[in-house]
């Protein structure tokens, strides 16, 4: 019966694991709803500011902000990589890092140097291992990140851009397609690319090239503030969207872990029953054999 007892303990420990994973699944499901609400709530602002900035890029402004000018030579590329703080969310972070490395390799082949800003502890530990140049990191954003949490790290990257240490700034995060699907996206923040708002642009207002805004107080001060706000809001949107992705991915990962534990238990129970049956049969035949010998 020794084998049967071992199997029974194994089944017990798998059952415990299953309880944990199914609890985590339920927690992730309820957190996902909250994270999705947060994502939806911040979408209008991100979308409107993208529209406004697309209009500015369309216009023919008297003052060209530094962020609007495409630099001829791209010597350094900065990435803001948005990851999760915790693991156990399937291949979410892994896929994201793969996408970053692929894009980064393309830039490196063109002779560009790379700098990274890691949001979320998974990204910073990844770049520590991988050996990328990490210039800013922020983790512990929690479930309800605020714009204030991000200002610091965004500022580091913007200052680098202002000083010419970076010629391009890209934000990388997971896009929430639906609960089952999340896919990594890379989006160029700086310099502003004209196709940025193309899909959202209402055509009535598209009159490229020939007009300019009236600015109050003046173009420089206004655009300085507005474009910084724009970058911050895009990064914030990336972070909350990634948060929703994290919970969805964790829910799916935990659901499949629970299912797998169930399969494992079924298999082990079959083995256990066979072992038990074999032991009983053996005992009976021993008794019968013993009785016959008497």
């Amino acid at each position: 019966m020794a084998a049967a007892k071992e199997i029974r303990t194994q089944i017990g420990s798998i059952k415990n694991t299953q309880k944990i994973t199914s609890a985590m699944e339920m927690v992730a499901a309820s957190k996902m709803r909250k994270a999705q609400d947060l994502m939806k709530a911040s979408q209008p602002y991100a979308k409107q500011i993208r529209n406004v900035v697309a209009h500015i890029a369309d216009a023919n402004p008297e003052y060209k902000h530094d962020y609007m000018v495409e630099r001829t030579e791209v010597k350094r590329v900065g990435y803001i990589v948005v990851s999760t703080d915790r693991g156990l969310c399937g291949g979410l972070n892994h896929n994201l890092f793969k996408a970053v490395l692929k894009d980064a390799a393309a830039w490196r082949d063109q002779g560009a140097e790379l700098e990274f800003c890691a949001l979320g502890s998974k990204a910073s530990s990844f770049f520590n291992k991988y050996g990328g140049k990490l210039v800013a990191a922020k983790s512990g954003l929690g479930e309800a990140p605020t714009v204030e949490d991000l200002i610091g790290s965004v500022k580091v990257m913007l200052e680098a851009y202002d000083e010419g240490r970076l010629d391009r700034l890209i934000v990388v995060h997971n896009e929430f397609v639906n609960t089952m699907t999340q896919q990594p996206v890379l989006r160029q923040l700086l310099p502003l690319s004209p196709d940025m708002g193309a899909d959202e642009q209402d055509d009535e207002n598209a009159r490229p090239g020939s007009w300019d805004y009236l600015y109050e107080p003046d173009a420089k001060a206004l655009l300085d503030n507005l474009l910084v706000r724009f970058v911050e809001s895009q990064v914030y949107q990336a972070v909350v969207e990634n948060g929703a992705c994290e919970q969805a991915a964790r829910m799916i990962a935990m659901k499949s872990a629970t299912d797998n534990a169930g399969d494992l238990i079924d298999d082990l129970e079959m083995v256990y029953n066979k072992a038990r049956q074999a032991a009983i049969t053996q005992e009976i035949s021993e008794i019968v054999g013993g009785a016959a010998a008497v």
Partner: peptide, 16 residues
């Protein structure tokens, strides 16, 4: 720079 009212057909304007 002060209060401003916007009516339909206003010229493109950006303000803080």
């Amino acid at each position: 720079m002060g209060d401003l009212g916007v009516l339909p057909g206003h010229a493109p304007l950006l303000t803080e």
